[in-house]
Amino acid sequence: MTTALPYWRLSGFYFFYFALLGATAPFFALYFDHLGFSAARIGELVAIPMLMRCVAPNLWGWLGDATGRRLAIVRLGALCTLASFALIFVSQSYAWLALVMALHAFFWHAVLPQFEVITLAHLRDQAARYSRLRLWGSIGFIVTVVGLGQLFERVSLDAYPWALILIMGGIVLGSLWVPNAQPAHREETAGHGGFLAQLRRPGVLAFYVCVALMQLSHGPYYTFISIHLEALGYERGLIGQLWALGVVAEILLFLVIPQLLVRCSLRQVLLASFLLAALRWLLLGNLADHLGVLLFAQVLHAATFGSFHVAAIHFVQRSFGARQQGQGQALYASLSGVGGALGALYSGYCWTALGPAWTFGLASLAALAAACVTAIRLKEEGP
């Protein structure tokens, strides 16, 4: 007997989870700038959650695979994220904020890799429908980034932590609404052996190197794009709308990518994503003062995040067996964190010394390197 897909419960969780990303990615740097921190300190504070992503997902992923209690981990992570972030009201010193960023991120990054396994377990042989669920995360991102952009044109950024607390509460409630599911055994698809044996299969390690490089290339964007655009004279409301435009393009991509994956291999989708990312960073670093170019660069978010993420999730699912799915997704999250942290750190130190053009230029080189690794090391597979 086939169980009906709990579409709205799964998509509702994605909505709140990525609403939090929409509240943090564009506004954390602005908030820290509002508190008076330098570019280097901002880069360090933004890097801390990404560094926690290097450790936390692997720990929680191993625990999820060992116990099978992935939904319990999701719920615990959501609750502890809320509780630990509430410590931000105690102090706004650099050391205390660093502690808050590390602590809440340790639990926040426990959540998504385990939830991805639960989602794919619900989907089973309907994995192509993943993008239709995930697009609600993008909608949550848009609602938050536009809403907060308009809000902070009217009120002080001192209200920012309260907005995050409300969204984190939504994640907690969403996690309580989701039913559990366990992945089916697919040893014949993913190959035999344990996690390390499957990791050593041709192209898998190369894929993870590309994941780190792609997130490294996003460092200047996630850390400084809002500050960069504000310095170019754009209003905060418009900046929020520009972030939202990128995610609208991502949603449209999610709607068509099932058909795209029928016609193209994962390798082809990943390669195109990396090449378009290299172009996007060059445009943002050199021509963001031209609104038309800026709009085009934001539309490219459909490739630099949308197609890349969906192809990556499918690649991980294909590459690991049922008992290693949590660890495979966790390693994807961890290496995303490694790359993102290094990207935030280098951009923080380069922003003042080299300027936006050179900082984004280095990001473009990282994306090109990922394209080269993909072209050389990833084997071609059927759609």
Rank of each mutant, 00 (worst) to 15 (best):
G246P: 01
V247W: 06
V247L: 11
V248K: 04
V248S: 06
A249L: 09
A249S: 14
A249Y: 06
A249M: 09
E250F: 07
E250L: 08
I251W: 02
L252V: 06
L252Y: 03
L255F: 12
L255D: 10
L255K: 10
L255V: 12
V256P: 08
V256W: 11
I257G: 01
P258V: 07
Q259D: 15
L260G: 11
L261Y: 00
L261M: 04
V262W: 08
V262Q: 15
R263P: 05
S265M: 09
S265L: 09
L266R: 10
L266A: 12
L266S: 09
R267C: 02
V269Q: 03
V269R: 00
L270G: 02
L270A: 01
A272C: 11
A272T: 10
S273M: 00
S273T: 00
F274H: 04
L275Q: 03
L276F: 15
A277N: 09
A277D: 07
A277P: 05
L279I: 13
L279M: 13
R280Y: 00
W281R: 02
W281N: 03
L283G: 08
L284Y: 14
H290F: 12
H290G: 05
H290I: 10
H290M: 08
V293A: 14
V293C: 13
V293E: 09
L294W: 14
L294S: 15
L295S: 01
F296S: 06
Q298S: 13
Q298A: 14
V299F: 09
V299C: 13
V299S: 08
L300E: 04
L300N: 04
A303D: 08
T304R: 03
F305I: 03
G306C: 13
S307M: 12
S307V: 09
F308M: 04
F308D: 00
F308A: 03
F308H: 00
H309T: 10
H309D: 12
A311F: 05
A311L: 07
A312C: 08
I313D: 02
H314C: 13
